[in-house]
């Protein structure tokens, strides 16, 4: 098994095909989307591939050490142009193909008009040998 981090971005990802802000969808479309996301997580828990999922607030700042006895330097809130992560899901799967397949499925979540959003998700393998590496 190998772990993968699926990252969803508020900003910084290429624009999705079906790019309508969620508050402009119909209430039924919103419900359908949330049902899809919930079903997806439930399914992964059922297959034993779900590890963790969390959402992040759309704010934050950069921080760095500024020398002995001085408070850390902060920069932020993040500028509008900066990449901003919205949340993650960690999955534990048998192959990279499976990770890609699942990310594709997540990206197919329905949006405006009931059509898939085609949202771009970032897939990042955890450090470690690939699962199919010969013993």
């Amino acid at each position: 098994m190998a772990k993968y981090l699926l990252l969803k971005h508020y900003r910084g990802a290429p624009a999705p095909e079906n790019d309508v802000p969620m508050d402009r969808w119909t209430p039924n479309e919103v419900d359908a989307h949330m049902q899809y996301m919930s079903d997806f997580a439930t399914k992964l828990q059922g297959t034993g591939e779900f590890v963790d999922g969390q959402a992040l607030a759309p704010e934050g700042l950069w921080v760095r050490y500024d020398g002995e006895g001085r408070p850390p330097v902060t920069d932020g809130p993040f500028a509008e142009t900066k990449d901003l992560i919205a949340g993650w899901m960690i999955i534990d799967v048998d192959s990279q193909e499976r990770a890609v397949e699942l990310a594709g499925e997540l990206s197919a979540a329905p949006g405006a008009g009931g059509r898939p959003i085609h949202e771009w998700l970032e897939v990042r393998p955890f450090l470690g040998l690939p699962p199919d590496y010969p013993a």
Binding site: D23, R24, D31, M34
Partner: peptide, 12 residues
């Protein structure tokens, strides 16, 4: 989720 549903409802 609740507030998004409210926004979607009023926009509709």
């Amino acid at each position: 989720d609740h507030q998004i549903r409210q926004a979607a409802r009023v926009n509709e």
